[in-house]
């Protein structure tokens, strides 16, 4: 490190072992000449070239850009966006509720509850999402009628619409993942917090709602933001069971007019928009939780 210039020796002569002061420690009188960072220029140039090639390829490739523009705001696509967002939101809500339930069961003292939670998490994480989707949608093949004595008796096919099938598949699958997130969030809150809450007379439920969950949010919220963004893309699988989301809209059009790539580009555009908005929202939520974290960090150090 040429950073520090040793002080002169007591007799006033300079320390002969001292390295010459480098450019990082300029003497006040001298101006600084930074070295040229060739690597930077080279890498920027390379990236620009690659980008230019890609852009040109798409420009001269067999893409009919006016068609892309024509269908960008077509009603099928706009409905697709709405349905994608609705399914994402409902599946995440279901997933978070199931995840919370499974997390609480997983942390309980009751071995039966713990085992049930572990089994749920294992099964729904083990099976591919598409397989789960197909099973839920085809539930009628297993149970032709949904029957609760004296309450309902309906044909399963009437109940399991594409929306319900997709909601069950993705919500239940999401719950298995979210339960792990929530569980680690609950565990991140020190045991002393439960003790303190109980010592002032709170019941378990009060302690959970007022003391534990608010603190666990710091750990829970960021990954759930990521998973929501993931869910937006997961919902595209539901096109397979005729749920009218973005991909379904694109396919409906290109089956009719044969403009496959143009409509896939339309779909790609809209996914990017939705994800960009969610990313923006997520960064704000994270900032909010990081702010309220500040005083906590000090206390834990104390």
């Amino acid at each position: 490190m040429p950073g520090k210039v040793p002080p002169p020796l007591a007799d006033g002569s300079a320390n002969r072992l001292a390295p010459p002061a480098g450019p990082a420690a300029p003497d006040v009188a001298h101006s600084v000449v930074h070295r040229v960072r060739y690597g930077r220029y080279v890498s920027v140039a390379l990236i620009l070239i690659v980008l230019a090639v890609i852009v040109r390829a798409f420009a001269v490739g067999k893409i009919d850009w006016p068609v892309v523009g024509e269908f960008l705001f077509s009603s099928l696509m706009l409905w697709g966006i709405v349905n994608t967002i609705v399914l994402t939101a409902c599946a995440m809500v279901l997933g978070i509720l199931l995840g919370l339930a499974a997390a609480l069961m997983g942390n309980s003292n009751n071995p039966v509850l713990r085992g049930t939670a572990a089994g749920y998490i294992f099964v729904f994480r083990a099976l591919p999402a598409l397989l789960q989707l197909l099973i839920w949608y085809n539930l009628a093949l297993i149970f032709p009628v949904i029957w609760l004595p004296g309450i309902v008796e309906v044909a399963t096919t009437k109940v399991i619409t594409p929306f319900v099938g997709a909601l069950l598949a993705f919500g239940i699958l999401q719950g298995a993942y979210t339960s792990e997130v929530i569980r680690s969030g609950l565990l991140s809150v020190g045991k002393g917090q439960v003790d303190a809450a109980r010592s002032i007379g709170m019941t378990q439920a009060q302690a959970l709602r007022r003391i534990i969950l608010p603190q666990a949010m710091r750990v829970i919220v960021p990954p759930i933001g990521n998973e929501t963004i993931g869910m937006v893309k997961f919902t595209s699988l539901a096109s397979v069971i005729q749920y009218k989301e973005i991909i379904y809209g694109a396919q409906a059009v290109y089956y009719a007019n044969g403009r496959v790539i143009e409509l896939l580009i339309v779909a790609a555009f809209w996914y990017s928009v939705v994800v960009a908005i969610l990313t923006y929202v997520q960064s704000h939520i994270e900032r909010h939780y990081n702010r309220s974290q500040a005083p906590v960090a000090v206390q834990e150090a104390a």
């Binding site: 917090q193 003790d195 303190a196 809450a197 608010p214 603190q215 309220s292 906590v296």
Partner: peptide
Amino acid sequence: MVFQQFNLFPH
């Protein structure tokens, strides 16, 4: 009850 580690609610 007063605890060794205070256990105040940090939020």
